[in-house]
Design a protein around this nucleic acid. Structure first.
Lengths: 230, 230
DNA sequence: TGTATACAAATTGTATACGAAAAACAACTT
DNA sequence: AAGTTGTTTTTCGTATACAATTTGTATACA
């Protein structure tokens, strides 16, 4: 869901879709800074389309929690606040552990094999271009993981939540080279699922989420970006 | 969030907003049956606007999980499946108990007083028109309750989830006269929050959600609507 | 100087027209 | 009768033009 025009999984190339992806990426990679003001006209110029596809893209980004519309003033890139980061991570913990609890009992060996293939994803430290790609694949991994819960609505919610958090994750990546660390975290999770070890799966994902949160908070404290404290 | 054009809480009347609300209500009250096919043109005619606001409305309803778009075929009202009902209720249990857990420790006496005012909402048995209004106010109550958690993202998720479940709730209402029962359930919850009794708050809401689920499943078994079994 | 008012500018909201892509259908071939 | 091809119809996607609404500004007046 929230994936635009789809034909049973195949995505049609539409201008609105392109604008959505491009704009989203630019927000996530902080090319558009939190608080920045963007008008439809401006965006239409920037991304080479008319205002109609821009409107559609902005509408979706509003639901993604990345943009806010102020009538007759324009769109504004949502601020990143410590509160919001905390809220999101609390929810991520709640929902992702729940998903894995279900997955541990419902996933087949086949499912897990398929998952292994995309667990192996890394990025190149200091290569900003690779960050965005990594974030996409990392998101896909977590979504596939969630899909093992066999609860479609849960997957949709997690997709939205994690999608909205990509911007946070981006902050954490440049802080240090965690590429291989994160990769082995992925593989460890799949391994534990293979062993049908629900308790350890839960505590494992819990630790991973905590360390992800810590990475990001450390990046913020390192003054990598100025942000409102509440 | 997900509330269309807003000026600090005040909602502007826009055609797209009207179409969204009207169409949503018609889907929730089953005026558009699950599986029904709707084209943009058709909807524009039905709701007296051009296709542009219809597109926007349908886009939002897709994210709400009420519509699906099949390119070049039209929009289709999503089916109601037992699986989906189960999934949604599982999530509701998880998220709403979590929200109340937070609320129990974070809500002020003032918050609770304000909540009491909207807890008292009923519907008139067999008066279908009153059902939709009741569902709206009931949703508002649960959202306000969730807001006491002070986790804005959680509120947004619950708004989407419960919003998408309105159609299920609708089914349950006509099964019997639960108006006063639901009202006292609301009041009981607020009462327990007042007493700062977290454990009982949780078990209370758990019971209420269970009985809500049972009502709906009973309505379905009573063959009130034909639906796919998986 | 302060305030009210009228006007101009900026921005979004909506309708409409046109084009592209897919689906539905019919005619044709084998 | 089945499959294939070509045409028509349907439906969506996009650009553009215009209307509605708000904001900001300048001006007149007290």
């Amino acid at each position: 869901m929230a994936e635009g025009a789809t034909i049973t999984g195949v995505q049609r190339r539409t201008v609105a879709e392109d604008v959505y992806n491009a704009l989203k990426r630019d927000i996530i990679t902080l090319r558009h800074r939190p608080g920045a003001s963007l008008t439809e006209q401006e965006l239409a110029g920037l991304y080479g389309s008319s205002r109609v596809p821009v409107r559609e893209a902005c509408g979706r980004l509003q639901q993604d929690g990345l943009l806010t519309n102020q009538p007759f003033k324009g769109y504004f890139v949502n601020q990143i606040s410590l509160n919001e980061i905390g809220d999101c991570f609390d929810l991520r913990l709640l929902l992702e552990t729940y998903a894995l609890e279900l997955a541990a009992s419902r996933a087949t060996t086949d499912d897990l094999s398929r998952l292994e293939e995309i667990a192996a994803t890394e990025y190149t430290y200091h290569d900003w271009e690779s960050y965005a790609d990594f974030l996409d694949r990392n998101l896909e991994f977590h979504i596939r993981l969630a899909e093992l819960s066999r609860n479609g609505r849960l997957v949709a919610i997690l997709r939205d939540l994690l999608g909205g958090m990509q911007r946070f994750f981006f902050l954490g990546l440049d802080l240090g080279d965690f590429a291989s660390e994160m990769r082995s975290e992925h593989e460890q999770l799949v391994e534990l699922l293979h062993r049908r070890d629900p308790d350890n799966v839960i505590s494992c994902v819990r630790n991973q989420i905590q360390s992800s949160r810590d990475r990001i908070l450390r990046a913020l404290i390192d003054d990598r970006i100025e942000l409102p404290l509440r």
